[in-house]
């Protein structure tokens, strides 16, 4: 495959922004659906994306930044490794999630990023985690290590 030049990459991401914005702009309250689609496509909502969306929706760049920075889901830069969201809320704590969390980083051994999440709705079968859209439950050290191994 021919390497893509910087200018081409920029043009193609601008086209993608425009396509995403066009898909949502006539909805009531289009900003969050747009940001979700950008994050799903590019893995992050970066500075260029914020400026482009602000311009298209007639918002200030500060308004868009305010929204992006408010919500935990939006990232500035794409995660370099798969993200394992490990539940750290009370129901999982009661089932040993804190002990697992203390070892999780070591068990992930550089293959995955471990991030906290507060509740996945798997509260009777914790400790629980989610990778992408796949839920995992009844995790202990062995199961967690296997989960990371299979990523």
């Amino acid at each position: 495959m021919r390497p893509i030049s910087g200018a081409e990459a920029l043009r193609s991401s601008v086209d993608t922004f425009d396509a995403i914005i066009a898909a949502h702009r006539d909805r009531d309250g289009p900003l969050l659906p747009i940001l979700h689609d950008i994050q799903a496509t590019f893995g992050a909502v970066d500075e260029a994306a914020k400026r482009h969306v602000a311009e298209a929706l007639n918002l200030t760049r500060a308004e868009v930044h305010g929204v992006v920075s408010f919500y935990h889901d939006f990232r500035d830069t794409p995660a370099e490794r798969p993200v394992v969201k490990l539940c750290r809320a009370e129901a999982c704590q009661a089932r040993g999630a804190e002990a697992l969390a203390a070892k999780a980083e070591a068990l992930a051994a550089g293959r995955a990023v471990v991030e906290p999440v507060y509740c996945l709705g798997l509260c009777a079968i914790g400790p629980a985690a989610m990778v992408g859209t796949t839920p995992y439950a009844r995790l202990d050290e062995t199961a967690f290590a296997r989960l990371v191994e299979e990523l």
Binding site: A89, E90, A91, C119, G121, L122, C123
Partner: peptide, 11 residues
């Protein structure tokens, strides 16, 4: 937006 830990009935 069922964020309470220990709840999953909405889900």
């Amino acid at each position: 937006d069922e964020g309470d830990s220990g709840t999953f009935a909405d889900r």
